[in-house]
Computed example of a mutant assay.
Amino acid sequence: MKYTGERVLPDTMNPMNGMLLEHIARYQFAIYYSKGRVLDIASGSGFGTQLIAKAAKSRLQEVVGVDIDQEATDYANGRYYHPLVTYKTADAADPFLPETLGKFDAIFSFETIEHISGEISFLRNLFAMLKPGGTLVISTPFGLGRGQPTTEPFHVHQLTEKEFFSLFDGYNHIERYYQRGVLIEPGRPGRHYPIGIAVCIK
């Protein structure tokens, strides 16, 4: 699979690569919320999808990894196979996605929303696919805000902290977390965090 500057391919990266360690930390964080039927949307190479399946296998029925790139799906099937995992190629903003994939007990979406111009359709899909009482864990890097320029060539824009956390007001409960390197915590006053993580209960 081609490296685009955004793909996390552990086999081709230094084990101490900062981006790799950040991604691993997010999946480790998500293990706690993994149960029943789980969706990993924008699953990329599949390493995190498999990580979840291995770590939480006793609590899982199925893990579905979805990515828009067929090459990524093929790579994931070949490199990160697990009997509990199914990889599919699909557009996260496709309005028919909930009908295609069904309902989930937990949905994970890491570093995805900043790539999607159809943000509203994507968020509607996440809500529709989550079972009542289910958990959405979603992360994004903070930036200048919706419609503002970003130095990242693959990002549509990067939301502000306020814009990001306001997206989930329709959920019954929201917990705010922040990430800096491998550290994920509720946040401390005066400390700068480049990445936000929302844990949302429907």
Rank of each mutant, 00 (worst) to 15 (best):
P132H: 02
P194I: 08
F29T: 03
Q70C: 04
M16K: 15
P98D: 00
R37P: 00
S58T: 12
G18S: 13
Y75G: 06
M16C: 08
K2H: 09
N172Q: 13
L9Q: 07
E22V: 11
I184M: 06
I138W: 05
L21K: 15
I68N: 05
R191F: 11
Y178H: 14
K88T: 02
C200Y: 06
P95A: 14
I116G: 07
E163T: 09
T112R: 09
R188M: 08
M129S: 11
G170W: 11
R180C: 05
K88W: 05
V156A: 14
I24K: 15
V182I: 15
L97G: 01
V38M: 10
S45C: 04
G187E: 05
Y178K: 03
L9I: 10
M13S: 00
Y171P: 03
T151K: 09
H192A: 04
E111Q: 11
S121Y: 11
G18C: 11
E163N: 07
H192D: 03
Y3L: 15
L130W: 07
I107A: 05
A76M: 03
C200T: 12
G145M: 02
I24V: 15
Y81P: 05
I116K: 12
D91E: 04
F142H: 12
I174E: 01
Q70R: 11
A198L: 14
K131W: 01
G18R: 15
K202H: 02
I113L: 09
A93R: 04
E114T: 07
G5M: 11
T89G: 00
M129R: 04
G181Y: 06
I116P: 06
R37Y: 04
T135D: 08
T112P: 08
Q50A: 09
E163H: 12
L60R: 13
L167R: 15
D74G: 00
V64R: 01
F110H: 06
V38Q: 03
N77Y: 05
N14P: 03
V38D: 04
G147H: 05
E163R: 10
Y32V: 04
V8R: 02
K2N: 14
E99Q: 14
K35V: 04
A93V: 11
K88R: 15
T160F: 08
L39R: 11
A198F: 13
G44L: 00
S109K: 03
V64Y: 08
Q158F: 01
F142C: 14
P132K: 01
S166Q: 08
P98K: 11
